[in-house]
């Protein structure tokens, strides 16, 4: 089995996932961390969309009155991607709201600085 040449959508999605993960680990700025998380989400959508595609078939909307499963692409990944997008939007909004509160309290977006300031605050 050697399908790396044909599965390049999946390969690109995996590489994007790795880039997002690296971003999540390496960035100190909290907003950039969440951008990394969103890149990871996008990679998952690309992977799912690639899994559902079939060569030579049309989108899953009734065309020319053909009711035949061998005429349309797989509709299930579309529904899964929809769920993923909704959850990703919700998580991003929630985490950015938390970041905004942190910024109001500590005046910084740098994670190390925030940790240090919170430790100093606890020590008092």
């Amino acid at each position: 089995m050697n399908h790396l040449g044909t599965n390049f959508y999946e390969a690109v999605s995996v590489i994007l996932f790795g880039i997002g993960f690296m971003n999540l680990l390496l960035q100190n700025n909290l907003i950039k961390k969440f951008i990394g998380l969103n890149i990871m989400d996008t990679a998952v959508y690309l992977f799912l969309a690639a899994q559902g595609y079939i060569f030579g078939r049309v989108a899953p909307i009734l065309t020319d009155g053909v009711i035949d499963a061998s005429y349309y692409v797989n509709p299930i990944p579309a529904g899964l991607v929809l769920t993923g997008i909704v959850v990703s939007v919700s998580v991003t909004a929630f985490s950015l709201a938390l970041v905004q509160r942190l910024y109001k309290h500590y005046g910084s977006l740098n994670m190390d600085e925030i940790m240090q300031l919170s430790r100093e605050e606890e020590g008092e």
């Binding site: 089995m1 050697n2 399908h3 790396l4 044909t6 599965n7 390049f8 959508y9 999946e10 390969a11 995996v14 590489i15 996932f17 790795g18 690639a50 595609y53 079939i54 060569f55 078939r57 061998s70």
Partner: peptide, 17 residues
Amino acid sequence: IAIMLSVVNSLPEYGNA
């Protein structure tokens, strides 16, 4: 990335019915 690429390598072919 390397582990996942090796998994992608053995996934079924893209666009196959």
